[in-house]
Simulated scan of single mutants.
Amino acid sequence: MHKISIIVPVYNVEKYLERCVNSILSQTYENIEIVLVNDGSPDNSPTMCDQYAKVDERVKVIHKENGGLVSAWQAGVRASDGKYLCFVDSDDWVEPDMISEMYAFLSAGNADSMEIPSDKKEIICCNFVIDRFTGDDMSSGQYKVTKHYHELKPGIYEGKQLETDVKDQLLGHENRLVSMSRCMKLFSRRLIEDNMKYCNPDITFGEDVNIVLPALLDCERLVIMEEALFYHYFYNYDSMVHKYDKKLYQGICTLRSVIKEIFEDKKRQNGEMQGDKEYIYLLMFALKNEIRGGRKNYSVKVREICNGNQDIVMTYPVIVGNKINRILYFLLKNPKLIYINVVRFLFRLGDGLHK
């Protein structure tokens, strides 16, 4: 049984950390290493991490200055020893058989001896549920659980099928073929180590694309598990949904540049088209951020984004099914002030209905 390192970035999560770490310690797969990376957390999380390390030898703790999520999981990778890597966010949790079930799908998953190595670069993907919490108090709030699956049909993808059905279709769709989250996946270590050079700590939106995209483009074997709802993604609606990020658009532009670099380095013939279509969908997030942000000059920023990207929007038509995205796509192509104000009104009306 090969060692698997599970890397958990930790920052300001004392309320959720116990649930997360206990779910990992409860894994039925025995040969695991848990790397808790304290990213300069100001709460009691660092002490909790150290306590776990004292009582369980499988836990390794890294303390570092705050540098953001990307720098935290990179530090965890460097400190880990496992042949395979898995990532879990510290406010999420996992089912006890997640690692054992994913390991069984690896090329070496059924090997009886460590002397039977597998150097194949592969990724095993399970599925996830989103636990949406509503309310200010976890004890009195309500959960809404929804199941989520990769768009790609369950199965094992190798050779030509992997190249044409997966790598040529990774980006540029409203719903990505394979989730770009680094979580809910089991990676061959080489895929992560060889591609950390693309990770840009300045990107705070879609940062996982920087590592998952090149890993998927390099992988030789991809497995999409059927059902396998092992990962619980915790989504606190009240704390997350309406935060305005003044750096979001610039971060999206930086992400676009990294995506372009990755496709060029990996020599994907349709990489430019994939990247540009993906950028159009990301622009919809940027518009939503500005319209919902509450700034007085929101319309100026919205028109700046739309007018500055008319060429690419008109060059690469995309298919949009989501109702909100259809409105935002229309706005991208028609950034008139009257339309912007109408969309603002509709968003505020919809947000009010959720309160």
Rank of each mutant, 00 (worst) to 15 (best):
Y11W: 11
N12V: 06
K15F: 12
R19V: 11
C20F: 03
I24N: 06
Q27L: 03
L36Y: 08
V37S: 07
C49P: 01
C49K: 03
V59R: 01
K64S: 07
N66W: 04
G67K: 08
G68R: 05
V70L: 12
G76A: 11
D81F: 08
D81W: 02
G82M: 13
D89V: 11
D91A: 05
W93Y: 15
I99S: 02
E101H: 06
A108G: 07
A111W: 08
S118C: 10
I124M: 00
F133Y: 10
F133C: 07
M138C: 06
S139V: 09
G141F: 06
K144S: 13
H148E: 14
P154R: 03
G155L: 08
Y157N: 01
G159H: 00
T164Q: 03
V178H: 00
M180N: 10
K185H: 04
K185Q: 08
L186A: 02
D194W: 04
N195G: 04
Y198D: 08
A215P: 11
D218I: 03
E220P: 05
I224C: 01
E226S: 10
F230Q: 00
Y231R: 02
F234C: 13
N236G: 09
D238T: 08
M240A: 10
Y244C: 07
K247C: 11
K247Y: 14
S257H: 11
K260N: 10
D265T: 04
K267Q: 14
R268P: 02
N270I: 05
E278A: 08
M284D: 01
M284G: 02
A286E: 05
G293Q: 04
R295Q: 13
C306L: 05
P317T: 09
K336R: 13
I338D: 15
I338W: 10
Y339G: 01
L349F: 11
L353Y: 12
K355R: 12
